[in-house]
Simulated scan of single mutants.
Amino acid sequence: MDRIAVLVPCWNEVLTIEKVVKDFKRVLPEAVIYVYDNNSTDGTAELAIRAGAVVRHEYRQGKGNVIRSMFRDIDADCYVMVDGDDTYSAENARDMVNLVLEGKADMVIGDRLSSTYFEENKRPFHNSGNVLVRRFINMFWGENACEIKDVMTGYRALSPMFVKTFPILSKGFEIETEMTIHALDKNLLLANVPVTYRDRPKGSVSKLHTFRDGIKVLKTIFMLYKDYRPLRFFSITALLLAFISLILFIPVFHEYMVTGLVPKMPTLVTSGFFMMAALVSFGIGLVLDTEVKNARKNLEIQMNMIRILLRKS
C-alpha cells in the first residue's frame, strides 16, 4: 500500500504532463505518481514515464471511466486527484494531504473559486456554469452543501474510506459533481483548501465542452437527487400533480354547486387521473425512501469494516 498516491487522468496532455509529474514529485517526494492514459495519441504516456510516473492505460474513453479504474486498482493512505493540464498548483498538495492523513477530512476540495479562477479562466460560460451548479447543490442538499466552495474542481485529496465506498456511475466529466454529492449525502468529513488556478498554456486545449458537458452535469444533479432523496423528489412531483388536479377540479365543482350538473365530465375524469398519479408518486417516494435508508445502513456497516481493515494494515 502506498502512503500517498497522486492520480493523474490524462488524454492528450503532452504539453503539460511532464511538468505536472515533476511538480508533484518535488512537493510530495514520498508519493507515487500514477498517470492513467486515456487513449492519448500525442505521446503523453511516454513523457510521463520519462518524468518518473507510473503509467497505466484505461481504454474506455471518459474521465469517469479512468477514475473508476484508479480507485479500484490503487491502495493508499491518501489519494490526490489532479488533472494533467497544469492548471492546478502542486504547492497546495501538502496542506490537502495533511488534512486527510490526520483524519480531519475524507475529501479535501481544492477550491479554485475562492482564489484565481475567475481571473484566469478565459471561458466565461465555465465561470457562470460553476456558480450555477454550486447553487443547485446548495438548494437540493441544504445546509451541508454550504461546506462546498467548488463543486467541479478536479483537484482533491481523498481518504481510503471515501475511495473504497464511492460507487462511480458517471463515465465523463460529471464525475466531480457525483463525488461531491456522494460526500454530502453520506455525511463524510469535508474540507476546503483555496488553491491557485491558472489557465491552460498556449496550445493546450480543454476537453470539456461547455454546453454539452454542462447539460450532463445538471442532469446528474437531478438524477442523484432522485436517487438519494426520493421522498422529497416524488413528494414535489406529487404536489405538482395534485395542484394540476385541483386546478381542473375546482371549476367543475363550482359549476356543480351552482347548477347541480357536471357538463365537463372529461375535465372531471382528467382531474381524477392527476390526483391518482399524485398519490402513486407519493407512495413511490415512501417505498424508495425506505430502500435508500436501508442502503445507508449497509454503507455504514461497510465503512466500519473498511475502518477495521485499515487499522489492521
Rank of each mutant, 00 (worst) to 15 (best):
T41M: 08
T41G: 08
T41H: 05
T44E: 02
T44S: 09
A45H: 03
A48R: 14
A48F: 08
R50C: 07
A51G: 09
G52V: 04
G52P: 05
A53S: 05
V54E: 14
R56L: 14
E58G: 02
Y59P: 00
R60D: 11
R60E: 13
G62D: 01
G62R: 01
K63H: 04
K63P: 03
G64L: 05
I67W: 02
I67L: 09
R68C: 14
S69R: 09
M70S: 09
M70H: 02
F71W: 01
R72E: 12
R72C: 05
D73S: 07
I74K: 01
I74M: 05
C78M: 05
C78Q: 02
Y79A: 10
Y79G: 11
V82S: 10
D83Y: 05
G84V: 10
D85Q: 08
D86A: 08
D86I: 09
D86G: 00
D86F: 01
T87C: 04
Y88N: 09
A90K: 02
A90L: 06
A90Y: 01
N92K: 04
N92Y: 05
R94G: 08
R94L: 13
D95C: 03
D95V: 04
M96E: 11
V97G: 14
E102V: 15
E102A: 15
E102S: 14
G103C: 14
G103V: 15
K104W: 15
K104N: 12
D106L: 13
V108P: 06
I109C: 07
D111Q: 10
R112S: 01
S114K: 09
S114E: 04
Y117S: 01
F118T: 13
E119G: 13
E119Y: 15
E120R: 11
E120P: 08
N121R: 10
N121I: 13
K122S: 13
R123I: 14
P124D: 09
P124H: 11
N127G: 00
S128G: 08
G129D: 03
V131R: 05
L132D: 12
V133S: 04
V133N: 00
V133Y: 01
V133D: 02
R134V: 03
R135G: 11
R135F: 04
F136G: 03
I137W: 04
N138W: 01
M139Y: 09
W141S: 03
W141A: 01
G142R: 02
G142T: 03
G142H: 06
E143F: 08
E143V: 12
N144I: 11
N144A: 13
A145I: 12
C146D: 05
I148C: 04
K149C: 10
D150W: 06
D150N: 12
M152T: 03
M152H: 07
M152P: 02
G154I: 06
Y155S: 06
A157K: 00
A157V: 13
A157T: 10
S159G: 15
P160L: 12
M161R: 15
M161D: 06
V163E: 03
V163D: 03
K164G: 11
F166R: 06
F166L: 14
P167L: 14
I168P: 02
L169M: 15
S170E: 06
S170T: 11
G172Q: 00
G172S: 11
E174D: 06
E174L: 00
E174R: 00
E174K: 00
E176Q: 12
T177L: 05
